[in-house]
Design a protein around this nucleic acid. Structure first.
Lengths: 372, 372
DNA sequence: CTGTTAGCGCATTCAA
DNA sequence: TTGAATGCGCTAACAG
């Protein structure tokens, strides 16, 4: 016997019992129902093709034949084998998703958006997670996804520059389309990105409008494109407002609260008249709030604080945090749409026409920046 | 031609060009490399079997043959088709994971644990998310997973009682093993669970030990098993300490900060001498901290607060939150192990021997409960 | 150590 | 409207 471990099959109906195979010798542990299109065909007294047509909702089946077969399918508890379908049709209806841990609120929301939209468009999701960027792990993940014959991949790993170089090639060689999330555009790659620069600018302008004069920044790790962009937005706003010499106003954190706390200590030391800070994510902003408390600085009177993300806790910080809200779920959904349209070959479609699709974040004003 | 959409194939090498098929008529959009085991075999001048043996690392291949084939595989950029392998071998090496949104820190951590362990044990993960319990969504998810021939399913959806009834049957009918996460055990189902009751008891005992006398509780939604268990742990501790008439000391929340805030308002109204509260998750505890501030209650002097989860922000709350830390990642990993051992048929294995595997949470003491 | 034969479950021609 | 033949890419069983 080839194919399939021998298993005890359930007696679906007597008609198909010739197909039943009791293999106790192997110590069958579980009972696996294994009704195939053939069984259905035999019971219905038709060919497998007719059953196939019914399964796939083809029009060219007599309606009474169809209803009869549908009933038999229900009776037998038949469920089509997608593995076989994929092999024979050459389509897997499967998308690969490569995510970065799930430690951050943003990445999790992206994943939710992806799953939901994939579900709507009839794709299944194969998930791979990576906690840090390791070349051989990347290799194994690509191998896995390609061997699964995924029809597209969503790459949601932070990082810019060199690391990415080879990646696009790997994909174009394989012929599998890929959408990058939150990455710099380059060389025709499909990208879906939050407009972090716009968000950073918006946050900073808000602080200036509120009457703060010395707006520092605590950025995320330099290796993260998001962090870089938010910083550029901050710089844009300050330069447009006529500020120069921003060097001392910047400290780099690592996204965690602790680094936000230390960041503020460092900032006030070098810039004694600092009266506001744009923090690159809400967790670090939480650390900043603690540092301010310890320094005896009143927020927002002595120090204005704006974060980024709008995590669910942000509105309950003390004081409630003004922050840049990003709709990361939308980002995920958009990436699936883009992939989907590309797979269907609609290059002219609006979503794909642009290599980069931007999603705009929104400012949510709360107490931490309400100087007025 | 049957199977596979006609696509332009890359000219791998001249030897295999007879296999190449330029179909511009279909308007081939992308170039798909489609090297099969056959191509490798032809180039190597061996049978496909030999190639198959090399791919699967079988010992019975001459070492020079092996190296030669490996080189050819690399040259051609061949990557095995898992779909075909699955169909022929009857194994998919795929696990289905059904999660509840990803709105809560716990569920996300569970997923991380699952992914990591699955990766270690050679399984791929097909992910399905459900935001609320809808019967037909459940149906579609099961259909999807079964049709993918998953070798097991991890069910990580909250909910107890009736909703679940039919579910176990669906699985046993299908023959696909399932592990439930954080659910009540029943009827021989495999369950992996956090010992929430123990956690709740630990939290409450801690508050009593600290010298608090009236320990209220803000629970999660009644429909959640976790919430119920944590509440029972709270009751255990109080009853053991001789308290009775706990009715007024309990308020139900919905996991969100707002409900924690309102919960405290309500509690202090009915129980004026309340001096401590065990909150069923950290987000609600955050709301409690705000309410305390507004009520003019000093934490921890006037009010002791203990949460549950230990989200990354908890140590930066104001004041830092004492909480019950759950290693949800471990929960996920354990569920994969359990499934894996079950699939391999090692029923005698320790992990599977028990129908329920418990994971113990740990108390993390911070300022919010430090009366002494 | 290697090749031959057969088949996994389904879909795609084409013919009837 | 239906059926027969064929193959997707790979592996199991057996023979040599």
């Amino acid at each position: 016997m080839t194919g399939g471990k021998s298993r005890v099959r359930m007696n679906v109906t007597d008609n198909v019992n010739d197909n039943v195979n009791d293999n106790d010798a192997e110590g069958a542990l579980r009972t696996v129902k294994n009704v195939t299109i053939k069984d259905v065909a035999r019971v219905a007294g038709v060919s497998t093709q007719t059953v196939s047509r019914v399964i796939n909702n083809r029009p060219d089946v007599a309606s009474d034949t169809r209803t009869r077969i549908l009933k038999i399918i229900a009776d037998l508890g038949y469920s089509p084998n997608r593995i076989a379908k994929s092999l024979s049709s050459g389509r897997s209806y499967t998308l690969g998703v490569v995510g970065f841990g799930l430690k951050y609120y943003g990445s999790t929301s992206v994943l939710r958006g992806i799953e939901q939209k994939a579900n709507e468009t009839g794709f299944s999701i194969i998930l791979s997670l990576m906690d840090k960027y390791e070349v051989d792990r990347v290799d194994r993940i690509l191998q896995e996804l390609f061997s699964h014959q995924v029809e597209g991949v969503i790459w949601s790993i932070p990082g810019m520059g060199k690391k990415i170089e080879g990646l696009s090639n790997r994909f174009s060689e394989s012929g599998v389309p890929v959408v990058f999330i939150n990455r710099e555009q380059s060389g025709g790659d499909l990208v879906v990105a939050m407009d972090n620069r716009f968000g950073g600018k918006m946050a900073t302008e808000h602080l200036l409008t509120q009457g703060y004069h010395q707006v520092g920044i605590i950025t995320g790790p330099a290796g993260w494109w998001e962090a870089q962009q938010r910083r550029l937005g901050w710089r844009d706003a300050l330069e447009e407002a006529g500020f120069t010499d921003l060097g001392d106003l910047m400290v780099e954190g690592d996204w965690l609260p602790k680094s936000g706390e230390n960041g503020l200590y460092q900032l006030v030391e070098t810039v004694p008249d600092l009266d506001a800070v744009f923090v690159s994510n809400d967790q670090m902003a939480l650390g900043v709030l603690r540092a301010a408390r310890k320094l005896g600085l009143q927020v927002p009177q002595d120090l204005g604080v704006v974060g980024f993300d709008d995590i669910p806790e942000a509105s309950y910080f003390y004081p409630p945090l003004t922050t840049v809200q990003q709709n990361a779920k939308k980002l995920g959904a958009l990436s699936v749409e883009k992939l989907h349209h590309f797979i269907r070959g609609e290059e002219s479609d609006k979503v794909v026409a642009m290599e980069v699709s931007w999603v705009k974040p929104e400012l949510v004003v709360r107490e931490s920046s309400a100087k007025a």
